[in-house]
Design a protein around this nucleic acid. Sequence first.
DNA 1: ATGAAAGCGCTAACAA
DNA 2: TTGTTAGCGCTTTCAT
Lengths: 350, 350
Amino acid sequence: MAQNEKITINDIARRTGLSKGTVDRVLHNRGEVSRKSYARVMEAIQELGYEPNVFASLLAKGKKHLIAILLPAHEPGTFWDLAVSGIALTTDSVTSASLETKLFEYDQYDIDSFRTASAAVLEAAPSGVVLAPMFQEATQAVTEQFQARGIPYCFIDSRPESNGYLAYFGMPLHKSGYLCADQLTRGQDISSVLIIRVRRDRYQQSDPTVNRRAGFLDYMLEHSPECKIDNVFIDPNDPAGIDQVLESYFTGHPDVHHIVMFNSRIHLVVPFLRRHPDPGRRVVGFDNLKANMEALRDGTVSVLICQRPEEQVRLAIEALAEHAILGKIPPRKDHFMHMDILTRYNVEDY
Amino acid sequence: MAQNEKITINDIARRTGLSKGTVDRVLHNRGEVSRKSYARVMEAIQELGYEPNVFASLLAKGKKHLIAILLPAHEPGTFWDLAVSGIALTTDSVTSASLETKLFEYDQYDIDSFRTASAAVLEAAPSGVVLAPMFQEATQAVTEQFQARGIPYCFIDSRPESNGYLAYFGMPLHKSGYLCADQLTRGQDISSVLIIRVRRDRYQQSDPTVNRRAGFLDYMLEHSPECKIDNVFIDPNDPAGIDQVLESYFTGHPDVHHIVMFNSRIHLVVPFLRRHPDPGRRVVGFDNLKANMEALRDGTVSVLICQRPEEQVRLAIEALAEHAILGKIPPRKDHFMHMDILTRYNVEDY
DNA sequence: ATGAAAGCGCTAACAA
DNA sequence: TTGTTAGCGCTTTCAT
């Protein structure tokens, strides 16, 4: 397959009787080349099987590419904290010599902070940006800017309906709800489930959990149509309130042993569950937050469905890097990541 | 953190009043440098915060590193077929410009073919080798050769007791048996299990499944001590015989609904199971062979526990590459990979 | 023990 | 439109 001796642009210059300069021009088709020369060069490239030497190229241009990462602030122990930790994974030490990443954070409950952060990204004029679509219109607005300036961008976690992105890396949401239901019920008939939800304010946020919930309900309808499904709402910032809500629910429904939560915050209810043990209980949540994993270890949570957010950002960065450095376009746009099932017996090496 | 302007060996040459040549000598400490110069250079490196430019380095030496992959022949649809497919994952297009991989295959049932393949590897004088320890002594023998010649090597899948390897990537075997038992029983009490085993000949092979089985039995002892555990042996090359064995077992034990197999070949019994459906049956196997995944999809197999062999070889190659190109030593030697739990509801995106 | 100099393959600025 | 040339940062050979 590989030529025995490496073909260089010198070889193809000689072969065509043109100069390195001209060859380089056609290689990066930056015009200023006659049709005829162009054709000759292309032909020689084919025949000789020329392949550019990335190292030489990178060395010669000596550019550092900037990849901007635009995400909600990563409070320790949150989902976004996990995602951010993925930035470090791009240590592909070689690539990294010509890559620089910069994190732009915003308050996921404050659309203005998002706008500010977006402006900063544009200001930085990166070669690519990784982002999660939190605020629908505002996201739409920035990405239009990106397109106008020819800056490629990748979505992670979820993905708007728009179409100009280079690639998307995330979990298939509807399916994840389906899987979640199967894990909760173990494929057996159950009579009642409690869904714990976070009260959402009118933040104009997109809510990825609605699809998840839909998947869950679809499964239940198909497999356990008789099952009674209750919903309860909690406020993440009010631990006492959480206790109260659960306390009152469970005194009213001592027979409910199946609990599920569709976002990453199952850990919020763990303290209550720990104080009210129930050997017959089964709890399923999402995402490998540290607090969640701990609850898995001690058995408070039965199953966690995870999506490796770090991998998602790593892959997004890599896609962008390959695009910036080598001009590659990912063959597929949408990359649905595998959903990992975590139990106490396989958490350790995650 | 990063210096504003990139520091080069010229900078440090100038700073020390020495030449590029000398600086290079200390950088790669290849002697021929006076203590004094050495110290001066080291000091300057510290002060200026010099970091080598990988591209320039690679360009200048223009060497291609060869990584040898020494594995059992990858009959399509087998475990090793999956592993081999991981070689392609090392397309880290940048790195790959200076990396070449070569696959050396042998018959896993023929120790002589292994010896021949090993010899070929040594002949090729690679910069690193990835291997799985199939034959204990023979493996010991080659790796000693590797060490003698300063060739670093990584184990995948399993790992001998020896110690000279650069890194190991594989599944925690005992734990995988434990997890397997939990998935089979769903944490509930069960009264009987059938373990299907492959009759092993006296091939002097190492058998990774014994640890797995041990983990499984430990779990059962702890959680379902009353459970009756049967074993049945099949011959992979005799489909008719397989049917017969199962037929006769199940007519004698119609009450056994839990089936498990500790190697990657659960697909061997799938045809029989398909012909004898049992809605109450639960089957757990290992590894994402195509045939296994199919059985998962149609419900014949309930759960598959997988270890991403492709990832293992990718990681091993990368470790070797980093070592060869950049002289990096992986911080950890043993990398136990996460065990993926696959059900019909999350196979699709695997 | 050290320095000088010729590349590695490609890019980009400048001439022609 | 095309050719020439000076690097990019590092390695390596050959003098000294």
